[in-house]
């Protein structure tokens, strides 16, 4: 009985098989990462039985976008590039301006007694507003909050907001709560 080795398998077509699989995966899959602006909608209220809570005028920062994608910020013609700065100034109210939101002293962990501004940002758009413009405005407003939070985190903890512990992040969120209220859109711009 002569010992016979295992017969060699012809692997010449292996490359072809691998190529076939490779091409299949190239065609059937995508590489893009899903990213986007996270927002939360207010819950649905069937009828307007409850009156919305009264908000003082000085506490509200109004942003209107019309059908021609123009901005009206606090009753002034506005530019999207300045929106973030204006919103930040309004939310923070560093000089206690009487036209800007009032502050209430609140007890906040890590900070102790801290004056928290009663700000609300009100955003209203037209049915004819372009989605791109709407999203850019939303982005600027969210960015204003995020920058303020980040600045406070650096000042208080010497670290970026994203690197803080959850309890610290929550404390900062209590000082700068994100309040962006969206009003029902108007239909002044004419056709849909």
């Amino acid at each position: 009985m002569a010992k016979r080795g295992i017969p060699e398998i012809n692997a010449g077509s292996m490359a072809d098989i691998a190529f076939l699989l490779l091409i299949f995966f190239l065609v059937a899959t995508t590489m893009d990462v899903d990213s986007g602006l996270m927002r939360r909608l207010p819950p649905w209220i069937d009828e307007k039985t409850e009156k919305p809570p009264e908000v003082k005028k000085r506490n509200v920062f109004t942003v209107l976008i019309n059908a021609n994608n123009q901005l009206l910020v606090q009753n002034e013609w506005g530019d999207i590039r300045q929106l973030r700065k204006k919103a930040k100034e309004f939310i923070e109210n560093p000089k206690d301006d009487p036209n800007m939101p009032e502050k209430k002293i609140k007890d906040i962990p890590f900070f102790g007694k801290y004056p928290v501004s009663e700000q609300v940002i009100s955003l209203q758009n037209d049915r004819g507003t372009k989605y791109e413009m709407y999203l850019k405005v939303q982005n600027e407003l969210v960015a204003a909050y995020n920058e303020l939070r980040n600045e406070l985190a650096l000042k208080k903890f010497g670290k970026e907001y994203s690197k803080l512990s959850q309890a610290q992040q929550e404390a900062i969120n209590m000082i700068y709560p994100q309040r962006i209220s969206e009003a029902e859109p108007k239909n002044i711009g004419g056709k849909k």
């Binding site: 899903d34 986007g36 758009n125 049915r127 004819g128």
Partner: peptide, 14 residues
């Protein structure tokens, strides 16, 4: 996730 084309008007989004 709302995947919306940039040229869409806000009416339908609302």
């Amino acid at each position: 996730s709302l995947k919306v084309d940039v040229n869409t008007k806000m009416g339908i989004i609302t």
